[in-house]
Design a protein around this nucleic acid. Structure first.
Length: 340
RNA sequence: GCCGGGAUGGCAGAGGUGGUCAACGCGCGUGUCUGAAAAACACGUUAUCCAGGUUCGACUCCUGGUCCCGGCA
């Protein structure tokens, strides 16, 4: 039985650090599960821990281009710098590339250690999510772009009322979710009516629940590719986490986040890009437009960071089968090693 | 010192002819979650500067006080 480790939890808990430590000890390689660290040139704001690491090109391809990894001695970190900041990355893409990377690591007889705070990305690896492989449909999106919530609801109800009924109140008022639901309904409709659907996931063999976690007892045959997943969650008392957030902001300012943003803007990346909506970037928008003082930016940044941290806690709290560890307890590491 | 304006929830900030008044936004709290997820969205949350007076009743009118802002000096 092959194994895989996933380290998750809210921001600032030292997931990467732990990942590297385990990688060293158990002959593993890190695979990032982070929706922001995939962007090239966004290093300080997204908190890539890559000082002393060298970027190397691999033979694994994404969109016909070879992706790279960061290496230091024998330690490798995958999943960073996959695309440029103006590329619209998303879960589906993540799932595809991460599965390729993990398969490669396993093939070489090493231990994949997935590390990250993006809950949905992690979920996509260990649970069968059938719609995740349905690609965006620009035509559909263009059509509904300017519709209001009411109109979006009506439209969805018309083409797939069942799907609408399954949505909860929160999602029914979320334009993004409504548009996506319309897109999915559209896709399924076309498939049923015999038209050729756009190509979905390019490797259906590993698309649905290839990696099994204890929470998803295997329903189908997964054969010898079965991988056992160990989920480790890192956390700490809230006051500790908040303090770490404060320290982080100071640190990133010192590392030159402003300079990094300047260079991104110089290269033509706009504030409206999804990549620029990340923490530590979007807060600087009014600053660069001369509409806010630096102190305001920092206050807002800290606030946003803490709100994000809380949302992560909500998400991971609900995820089953996580072995939680409080990083402020000195014995946490040895206790955790006993699991391995 | 004089003249004028103002004091509303954690912040910012509306409104109405005295009649259960008290918007919106932000924050805060709790959540949602299958191709934007560090995103987007839902639900919840608290108030009329102080002391008197007029009145059946005052956040709203009157007097005094305290504090703030602008102008004149």
């Amino acid at each position: 039985m092959t194994k895989m480790i996933i380290i998750c939890g809210p921001t600032t808990t030292g997931k990467t650090e732990l990942g590297l430590r385990l990688a060293k000890k158990f002959n593993g390689e890190i695979v990032s599960a982070d929706s922001r660290q995939v962007y090239k040139g966004m290093d300080i704001g997204t908190g890539k821990d890559i000082s002393n690491f060298k970027f190397q090109i691999s033979k694994i391809k994404f969109n016909n281009k070879n992706i790279g990894y960061y290496e230091n001695k024998r330690l490798k970190i995958w999943g960073l710098d996959i695309v440029n900041p103006d590329y619209q990355f998303n879960v589906g893409e993540y799932k595809k590339i991460a599965e390729k990377i993990i398969a490669d690591i396993l093939k070489r007889g090493k231990l994949p250690i997935v590390v990250g705070g993006t809950g949905l990305y992690i979920k996509s690896l260990i649970e069968p999510l059938e719609f995740v492989s349905i690609p965006p449909n620009e035509k559909v999106r263009e059509e509904v772009r300017n519709l209001g919530i009411k109109e979006l609801k009506n439209k969805l109800q018309k083409i797939d009322n069942e799907r609408y009924l399954k949505m909860n109140n929160s999602d029914r008022n979320n334009p993004r979710r409504l548009i996506r639901a319309i897109e999915i309904a559209n896709y399924l409709h076309n498939r049923h009516s015999g038209e050729d659907p756009p190509a979905g996931g390019d490797d259906s063999r590993i698309n649905n629940g290839f990696w099994t976690s204890p929470s998803t007892p295997s329903s189908g045959q997964r054969g010898q590719n079965d991988v056992k997943v160990l989920l480790i969650g890192l956390t700490a008392p809230k006051e500790v986490l908040y303090k770490r957030v404060k320290d982080r902001i100071k640190k990133r300012l010192g590392q030159g986040i402003i300079k990094e943003i300047k260079s991104l803007l110089k290269r033509g990346y706009e504030w409206e890009l999804p990549s620029m909506s990340g923490l530590g970037y979007k807060e600087f928008h009014p600053f660069f437009k001369k509409k806010a003082e630096l102190s305001e930016v920092l206050r807002k940044w800290q606030q946003d960071e803490i709100k994000y941290l809380k949302r992560q806690l909500v998400w991971f709290k609900k995820m089953p089968n996580i072995h939680w560890f409080d990083i402020t307890k000195p014995e946490f590491y040895t206790e955790m090693e006993n699991l391995l």
